[in-house]
């Protein structure tokens, strides 16, 4: 039972890490209807900028600020030079453009900051919390807990930002209906620039967390693949959906990895590890069969 709980909690905490990446997708999809495949690459770029600036001698806080500036500029440039030119194109064209963007970043970022894997020190150690280890005999990583806290703070901030600020209201209006928002005088292009800036910020937080955990390396771009099932499970347009989806995916994935392979081994023989790679997708797929718009997604009504 203890072991089950340990796996469960570990899964929930790592699910929040996935949710961090998924949030970036949600931000952009909500505001501009673009399915931004480059989010994983942006996470990579953000983490690389932090590490790159630190290597040039900047302290951590300055590196973070510089990385934030880079991400914001980058987001604005993307909006200006790519997406604005593709207004009114079918969603698939925009989606393809973001895949192109992902390639662009994956090539450019290591050219500027170097491609060798590096560690990112945030001052949080990835070790079990002694108090829990002693009392309940469970290994819960301190780092995971901090990451979960960061995710929670980020979501709360974003939710408040969306709900109570002028810009947040404008963002919601744009998400609801581009044309209506435009007609009441909301500057669409500024809003999109802001959204890309915010997505860059989310990518920065995710990049620092993932970078500190696994090292800053090319594999960071694959975090996007982890975030996708979270995204469709929670719904493309919902911030809380990303969190709940992340929790479900994280927990079930870890449990599946522990409990399914032995069963399959008994049935077929051989080694069946690595279920993590596809299990979240199949889970999300089965879930979508019941609720095609995800947990919190807006219900889609077709009109002929």
């Amino acid at each position: 039972m203890n072991f089950f709980l340990e796996v469960l909690i570990g899964g929930l905490l790592s699910g929040l890490m996935y949710a961090l990446v998924a949030l970036g997708f949600v931000m952009i999809y909500k505001a501009s209807g673009v399915f931004n495949f480059a989010q994983g690459a942006m996470v990579y770029l953000a983490a690389l900028s932090v590490v790159g600036c630190m290597e040039k001698g900047a302290p951590l806080w300055l590196a973070i600020i510089l990385a934030f500036v880079i991400m914001t500029l980058f987001g604005i440039a993307t909006e200006k030079f790519v997406l604005r030119k593709l207004v009114n194109q079918p969603p698939i064209a925009l989606f393809m453009a973001t895949i192109g963007l992902a390639f662009f970043i994956e090539g450019l970022a290591p050219m500027v900051f170097g491609s060798e894997p590096r560690a990112l020190e945030l001052g949080i150690v990835d070790e079990p919390i002694p108090w829990i280890l002693d009392n309940w005999n469970m290994v819960i990583s301190k780092f995971d807990l901090v990451a979960a806290g960061v995710a929670a703070v980020l979501v709360a901030t974003l939710a408040l930002f969306f709900q109570y600020t002028r810009v947040g209201r404008a963002l919601r209006a744009v998400a609801d209906d581009h044309q209506a928002a435009l007609s009441i005088g909301i500057p669409l292009q500024h809003i999109w620039a802001i959204v890309w800036g915010v997505a860059g910020f989310v990518a920065l937080v995710a990049g620092m967390m993932w970078g500190a955990r696994n090292g800053v390396q090319f594999a960071l771009t694959f975090t996007a693949l982890k975030a996708l099932p979270v995204l469709i499970l929670g719904g493309f347009t919902s911030v809380p959906g990303a969190i709940v989806g992340g929790l479900i995916i994280g927990a079930s994935e870890k449990l599946a990895e522990i409990y399914i392979p032995p069963v399959m081994q008994d049935m077929f023989g051989g080694n069946f590890g690595g279920i993590e790679g596809w299990f979240p997708y199949v889970l999300a797929l089965l879930f979508l069969l019941v609720r095609p718009e995800g947990l919190f997604g807006e219900k889609h009504i077709d009109r002929v």
Partner: peptide, 15 residues
């Protein structure tokens, strides 16, 4: 790296 960058840029350019 340049190859990947140019590839990505060309995809966007084409679109």
């Amino acid at each position: 790296h340049i190859q990947i960058t140019v590839f990505g840029a060309l995809i966007m350019f084409f679109l």
